Amino acid sequence: MLVTTKEMLLDAKKNHYGVGAFNVENLEFVMAVLAAAEETKSPVIMQTTPGTVKSAGLDYFYGMVAAAAARTEVPVALHLDHGDGFERCMQAMHTGYTSVMIDGSHVPYEENIATTAPVARVGAAMGIPVEAELGKVGGKEDDGPAVEGENPYTDPDEAVEFVERTGCTSLAIGVGTAHGVYHGTPHIQQDVVCEIASKLDIPLVLHGTSGVPDEQVAEAIKNGISKVNYATELRQAYTKGFMAYMAENPECFDPKKPAKWGMAEITKIVKIRMENLGSVGRA
């Protein structure tokens, strides 16, 4: 069933587990992520970035995820990841997305508030949760600019004021992670997670989690993270499976066959992540 992220994230916060939010690129990704959620009986968030949406359209992705949700008993939410402006978020809401993120993290603090607050007001009126971001998650997300050389950590006191002034229902925080492929081992600044969690009542979100050691993610959840995003490693898993099939069967011209291998790799990694998040059996 297609639901909003409100109840699933509040339950995760209350019971100290994480809900996985997995970026889906096409039908095969949707089916593979759903298979993992069903096998583990986990709530799941499927999300798309503006760059992904440009490849097909909000309506295509809504149609695929809504169809998947209608086939299952596990809670499924459809989330706009890194919404790049008021108009995009409104389009997603009116298309049927059950959660949106407005990303004003690349602009100064006051401008971020001015960007976030109108989306949060409309979301509140429509009953749709709105995620925002404060601080800098490094690397390069989607078509956005790379974030390098800036203080990567969210200021806890600023976070309190930001939530009060914007009305966002969840907050992505900068704690040392980065989007894309890591070069070296990433490190989550757990004391920052703890301090922000002690000051805010809304669920906290961890971005840039692909490649972060499981034990660090588990500790961050214990310290207050409720939603955990994965994108890069799903792309890597699918490509690995697809290419492995083609290497063994170079004459194959039926895309469904290598796609099945790619889907199996996604399902495998998503199940591992759900187990680490503690979401197994929480559907």
Rank of each mutant, 00 (worst) to 15 (best):
32 A>C: 05
32 A>Q: 01
32 A>H: 00
33 V>H: 01
34 L>D: 04
34 L>G: 04
34 L>P: 08
34 L>A: 03
34 L>F: 04
35 A>W: 00
35 A>I: 00
36 A>F: 05
37 A>M: 07
37 A>L: 05
37 A>P: 09
37 A>C: 08
38 E>C: 05
38 E>A: 06
38 E>S: 02
38 E>H: 02
39 E>T: 06
39 E>M: 10
39 E>C: 01
39 E>P: 00
39 E>I: 00
40 T>A: 07
41 K>A: 14
41 K>F: 02
42 S>K: 07
42 S>A: 13
42 S>L: 10
42 S>I: 05
43 P>R: 02
43 P>E: 08
43 P>K: 04
44 V>W: 03
44 V>S: 02
45 I>T: 09
45 I>K: 04
45 I>S: 03
46 M>F: 04
46 M>I: 02
47 Q>Y: 03
47 Q>F: 04
47 Q>I: 08
49 T>F: 11
49 T>Q: 09
49 T>C: 11
50 P>Y: 08
50 P>R: 09
50 P>M: 11
50 P>H: 10
50 P>S: 11
51 G>F: 07
51 G>N: 12
51 G>W: 06
52 T>D: 01
52 T>Q: 12
52 T>N: 07
52 T>S: 04
53 V>R: 13
53 V>N: 13
53 V>P: 01
54 K>C: 00
54 K>L: 07
55 S>E: 13
55 S>Y: 14
56 A>E: 11
56 A>F: 13
56 A>P: 00
56 A>W: 12
57 G>T: 02
57 G>I: 05
58 L>S: 12
59 D>W: 12
59 D>G: 01
60 Y>R: 11
60 Y>L: 15
60 Y>P: 01
61 F>Y: 14
61 F>D: 06
61 F>M: 08
61 F>E: 10
62 Y>Q: 04
62 Y>T: 03
63 G>Y: 06
63 G>V: 02
63 G>K: 11
63 G>A: 15
63 G>T: 13
63 G>R: 10
64 M>K: 13
64 M>Q: 15
64 M>F: 02
65 V>C: 11
65 V>K: 01
65 V>I: 15
66 A>I: 02
66 A>Q: 14
66 A>K: 14
66 A>D: 14
67 A>R: 09
67 A>M: 10
68 A>S: 06
69 A>P: 09
69 A>N: 06
70 A>D: 15
70 A>T: 05
70 A>N: 14
70 A>V: 01
70 A>P: 00
71 R>M: 14
71 R>L: 14
71 R>N: 12
71 R>S: 13
72 T>V: 06
72 T>K: 04
73 E>Y: 03
73 E>K: 14
74 V>Y: 03
74 V>Q: 07
75 P>G: 00
75 P>W: 02
75 P>K: 14
75 P>M: 09
75 P>E: 15
76 V>Q: 01
77 A>G: 10
77 A>E: 10
77 A>R: 03
79 H>M: 11
79 H>R: 08
79 H>F: 10
80 L>I: 07
80 L>R: 05
80 L>P: 06
80 L>N: 06
80 L>C: 05
81 D>K: 02
81 D>G: 08
81 D>Q: 02
82 H>G: 06
82 H>W: 03
83 G>S: 08
84 D>S: 15
85 G>D: 06
85 G>M: 09
